[in-house]
Amino acid sequence: MFASSLAVVLLTLAALLGAIVAFAWAWRKGHFHVDARAATLPFDDHDQRVARPWETPSQARERVQAHGPPLPPGPGEWGGA
C-alpha cells in the first residue's frame, strides 16, 4: 500500500511538521497577539494623510479626523502614470 507512496507521505508529513513548528514558534513569540497597529505596518504618515480622490466626503472627513490635514497626491501616487 505504501510502496509507491512512501516518498510523498514523508514529504507531506515533513511539510506539515514544518508548518506546525513555525506556528508554535510564532505563538511563543507573540506574533498572534496582534493589536490594531499590526494592520497599519505598511503605512507611514504620508499614506494616511494623502487625499484619495475616490473617497466620499464622509470617508475623507474620517481620514482628516484620524490623521490630520490632508496632503495632495503626487504624480504616480497610486502606481502608474
Partner: peptide, 19 residues
Amino acid sequence: YYLLPKVLGRPIHSYQLSL
C-alpha cells in the same frame, strides 16, 4: 496584501482573518 491597503490608504479588512 501590501498593495491593496497601501494604495487605498486603509488597513486590510480583518488582519486576524489574514493570519
